[in-house]
């Protein structure tokens, strides 16, 4: 089942002489439970693509379907609500809310939705990520690796259709990067999550089930799963 699909996704910044095409007619499909890595050099358009996929930025043209829903038909407010229900984010700089403790950060999107978190599931996620002993700590009391594990837990807790990870190991040392990536992959499999991760690191990309290569705004390899 296709969880994520794009059709002719194009993003142009600026106009006239300063016009830059960050993404050019990108077509992409990601299936349920897949772990895909988008790889590209700096400025290749991979972050732009991820932002479009997550509905954080609107494309100049083209469509994005998440769980069968064309997300850019939604207005901003509805798109945000859709995002908290269907998309989990893991950022390079963790982006935890500094005034909320670990547990509150994890259930933050769920409680914003007015729902009660599935306690058992959240506990399972927390245990799987090995952060059970630090649930009442504040983010600034945690190491970078611990903070990123909390961010992964937050992404998983809402049981989204897809998790989008933007250079999740960019701020971590290599040992911690390995740990965090393994956890991301293992927990993704465990909870049957679809993960799309962007990275510029070839070795990290190799951990994914599929590699999508992007160059100068064009998807050159792996846009559609041909397995």
């Amino acid at each position: 089942m296709t969880v994520l699909k794009t059709e002719g996704l194009t993003k142009i910044y600026g106009s006239g002489q300063s016009e830059v095409t960050a993404l050019d007619n990108a077509n992409l499909k990601v299936e349920q439970g897949e772990f895909a890595a988008i790889i590209g050099t700096s400025g290749s358009g991979k972050s732009t693509l991820l932002h479009m996929l997550g509905g954080l930025d609107r494309p100049t043209s083209g469509k994005v379907f998440v769980d069968g829903k064309e997300i850019f038909t939604l207005k901003d407010e509805a798109l945000t609500i859709f995002r908290r229900r269907k998309i989990g984010f893991v950022f390079q700089s963790f982006n935890l809310v500094p005034t909320l403790n670990v547990y509150e950060n994890i259930v933050f999107p769920i409680q914003l939705d007015g729902s009660e978190p599935d306690e058992a599931f959240v506990k399972e996620v927390i245990d799987a990520l090995g952060i059970g002993k630090m649930t009442s700590r504040l983010p600034n009391q945690l190491s970078g690796g611990q903070q990123q594990r909390v961010a992964i837990a937050r992404a998983l807790a809402a049981k989204p259709a897809i998790i989008l990870a933007d250079e999740p190991t960019g701020n971590l040392d290599s040992k911690t990067s390995q740990d965090v990536l393994s956890l991301l992959k293992v927990t993704g499999k465990k909870f049957s999550q679809t993960i799309v991760m962007i990275t510029h690191n070839e070795a990290i990309a190799q951990m994914a089930d599929r590699i999508i290569r992007i160059e100068d705004g064009h998807i050159t390899i792996g846009g559609e799963n041909n397995d």
Partner: peptide
């Protein structure tokens, strides 16, 4: 640094329900 006074905020925080008011 993110405006939370790092040196004084060493204690854990009790978990509560997240609402705009609580945040």
């Amino acid at each position: 640094y993110n405006e939370t006074d790092i040196s004084t905020k060493k204690t854990d925080k009790k978990t509560g329900r997240i609402t705009p008011l609580a945040v």
